[in-house]
Design a protein around this nucleic acid. Sequence first.
DNA 1: TTTTGAGTTGTTCGA
DNA 2: GTCGAACAACTCAAA
Length: 486
Amino acid sequence: MSSKARPSLLWFRQDLRLHDNPALNAAIEHGRPVIPVYISDEAGEGDWPPGGASRWWLHHALHDLTEQLAVHGLRLILRHGESMQALHSLVKETGAEAVYWNRRYESAIITRDKEIKESLQAEGLEAKSFNAALLFEPWTIKSKNGGPYKVFTPYWRTCLSNSVPKPEKSDPARATPPMSWPRSENLEDWTLLPRLDWDKNFYDAWTPTRRGGWARLHAFLDGAAHDYGRGRDVPGEDGTSRLSPYLHFGQLGPREIYDTLKSKIDPDRGGACKYVAELGWREFSYHILYHFPETPTEPLDPKFAHFPWEPDEKLLRAWQRGRTGYPLVDAGMRQLWATGWMHNRVRMNVASLLVKHLQQPWQDGARWFWDTLVDADLASNTQGWQWSAGCGADGAPYFRVFNPMTQGQRFDPHGDYVREWVPELAKLPDAFIHHPWEASADVLKEAGVDLGDTYPMPVIDHKQGRNRALMAYEKLKHFAKESTKS
DNA sequence: TTTTGAGTTGTTCGA
DNA sequence: GTCGAACAACTCAAA
């Protein structure tokens, strides 16, 4: 009997849910008491510990998970410090004989987890990891010659020629609590919430709980999903899923999302198909990150190592603060700051302006997004920025330079989005909302806009910026040729 | 091994 | 206003 009481540790990471959770299932099947654990191990995250917005979300997700566990008489044991050390300590304190977790795919984490697994097994414990985060493990999808894919379309075709896995049923009620609980730290002491009131608008924008994610999924599938092909491009509408932070923290799993979608809509048709492809891009990003682990800092395309970026603190800061003088871009940057999220169409535009017009390194943009996005995800963020800069998988060709006025007119024709996030321009007529500097003095005065004072002039002329970007690419070709010669 | 067709999201220019 | 071509060349994936 006493040996039966030796518990299992269930190590939560980015899988903060009690359903479709294979590590939880393994712990239950093992038949021992279950001790759920979360370890705050910022050093273990390498160069990418959670940014400010992510920490806000994490705080609430952990609080929510604690409440869900309590329903079943379970607690979430919180520890901080090195994962290896914390786990060994817990094993010692509790007499645990097994540790279960769900995988992560960042290079530093893979290395760390591998050492932990070997170390635990060396001590005679059962240590097993599972897949809760992806539809397809990165190493299972191979091109005909056996290597990883670098192009999305054939990658996704191969994925879909397999069947999409179903969610795994989990029954947390079957998890039994231990005879006694080890010590836990207090979530509040981790001070994950920002000190100032940066997050004051986050609460209106998000319900960072499992239930909130589920509600969002159903609202999306009942509404915007049907017109996703069009609506996802209109930042003034609620046309996207907004599920990315739930996916990042594992409050919803991609298997659950796909399965729910399939129960309501034909996943092969119309808007639903477009959305499933977005899940595919998430998978593809993980595929690339796994097979090319340096990509968070190094361009996938090696010739971009020579790209003549022109880092400039002032330009970067103007961009970060939403003061570039381009209303669509500024609206996006301010939405990001206010809500921890930015519409996808606008993400492409702000990224294009930063790396093309302003010639700032894509890594600087990625770092800012990492700190300010509630959905900051190393795989998706990296691939998104590399794609924008033209150095990533299936990168946008160098000559694809977004025109922020044209994009604004096409996707935000009445300026709804700009008016919401750049209120000092709200009274401008539609005709000038995306290029106020072309309005007459009378129109500006009528709208209460004083260019250069209440709202900045463009930091760079569009045509000039575009040409600068095209010229930089010319230089890149030159460098690439030189380097192959030598 | 060689060949062939294709590759998320755009802009501009000229007919 | 609309439409197609040019913007480059390369690499990937599969036959």
